[in-house]
Design a protein around this nucleic acid. Structure first.
Length: 267
DNA sequence: ATGAAGGCCTGAGGGC
DNA sequence: TGCCCTCAGGCCTTCA
């Protein structure tokens, strides 16, 4: 599931493998995924200079060119690099480079986005601070949650509050913080601890390399290892690693939440 | 302003 | 084997 750690891993891989490459041609095989894919032919002949991540978006910048390519992996999006790759089902956009290699955007469920930065204001305007930024601090969180009665789990999934935290890491961060996910956001006391644990769980996952990018030279695929370190996510009726109580699964805002009823009692 | 709910979309997995 | 149903979830839109 591409949350911040996976997107950051992909960013690092792209930086390593496609920086300096020049796009020769873009083969758009579908006009619509989550939103319409615009005409990308303006990028023909442009040389990739830098790969940035903002929230769960990848932003590919070009030398001597103001616009940039924006990619969001949604739920099932993958970026594949290689040369002479066989076309697969759900290959939606193929970026050909002048060295004959290619970058493929593949997304079975089409929740992803491929667009230009110049057309992305709507996607970026409402985004909150990056979790690792100084801006994401106690004063900010305290103020932002002061009047919010929505459950804390739902609040930290809101990209306007803080970006990059998806369903998996929301449950994991609350477990580490011993906070009950049902606690109204304005009743949570340990906000400093929550900030610390959101950062820690994201960093631990980045360190484990949750990767959705496959290097064509490693056909086995480079797979992240953090899924083996989940404390509560997907652990319904398995013992809590802290106290042994069986993990509970509930639904909040239409999404699964996993927590320990015994040791996540704090608000 | 807040927040609950619906919708997009395919593949995996369970039940029969 | 195969059909049908449910679930997975990022995030936008709609509605209360």
């Amino acid at each position: 599931m591409p949350e911040l750690p996976e997107v950051e891993t992909v960013r690092a891989e792209l930086e390593l493998h496609i920086t300096g490459k020049t796009i020769s041609e873009i083969d758009k095989r579908r006009d619509n995924i989550r939103i319409a894919i615009p005409d990308l032919s303006v990028l023909h002949g442009k040389k990739i200079s830098r790969i940035e991540r903002r929230a769960k978006y990848l932003i590919i910048h070009f030398a001597k060119y103001n616009d940039a390519l924006v990619i969001h992996l949604g739920m099932s999006g993958k970026i594949l690099l290689g040369t002479g790759l066989a076309r697969k089902n759900h290959d939606h956009v193929i970026f050909h480079f002048t060295d004959n290699s290619e970058m493929v955007f593949n997304d079975a469920r089409r929740f992803g986005v491929v667009t230009l930065l110049s057309q992305s204001a709507k996607l970026f305007n409402h985004l909150g601070p990056e979790p690792f930024s100084d801006e994401f601090n106690f004063a900010y969180l305290n103020k932002s949650l002061k009047n919010r009665k929505t459950p804390i789990k739902v609040a930290i999934l809101d990209q306007a509050l803080v970006v990059g935290v998806g369903n998996i890491y929301a449950s994991e961060a609350l477990f580490r913080s011993r906070i009950n996910p049902k606690t109204p956001a304005n009743k949570v006391r340990e906000l400093s601890g929550l900030i610390k644990n959101i950062r820690a769980v994201l960093q631990d996952s980045i360190d484990a390399g949750g990767s959705t990018l496959r290097d064509y030279r490693q056909t086995s695929g480079r797979i992240g290892k953090f899924q083996h370190k989940f404390d509560v996510y997907g652990k319904t009726n398995k013992p809590c690693p802290r106290c042994g109580t069986l993990i509970t699964q509930i639904t909040q805002a239409g999404r699964s939440t996993f927590y320990c009823q015994n040791c996540q009692k704090q608000g």
